[in-house]
């Protein structure tokens, strides 16, 4: 029961990542693509949480933490570059 519901949740998250990939592919300005990148990484963060539950290892959550920190850093760096140079 629980495993089936989590399987459906993982499928919905994959669909969400595909929709943001469409915006990343088509977005007219560079800022659009940066927003799409941000939402894509946050969605895959919760996908990592589901992978950790399915394979039953707590060590995978550390990867989620590093992943979130580095995606945040990337968005900040690109936004600073847009604003007035690094």
């Amino acid at each position: 029961m629980v495993n089936k519901i989590l399987f459906i949740a993982a499928l919905i998250m994959m669909l969400a990542i595909l929709l943001t990939l469409y915006r990343f592919f088509k977005g007219t300005t560079a800022a659009d693509r940066l927003v799409a990148f941000d939402v894509m990484t946050v969605s895959s963060l919760s996908l990592i949480g589901l992978i950790a539950k399915f394979s039953d290892r707590i060590i995978y959550l550390d990867v989620a933490m590093v992943y979130g920190l580095l995606s945040f850093l990337g968005v900040i760096i690109v936004a600073r570059y847009f604003e007035k140079g690094l």
Partner: peptide, 28 residues
Amino acid sequence: IAAGAVSLFASVLYLILAAPDVAMTEAA
């Protein structure tokens, strides 16, 4: 930005291939 996104999703693929240390280093 697209090359950075390739690296980030490759780190999720490393997680499925049972290599969390490589995933951490690739993301960082």
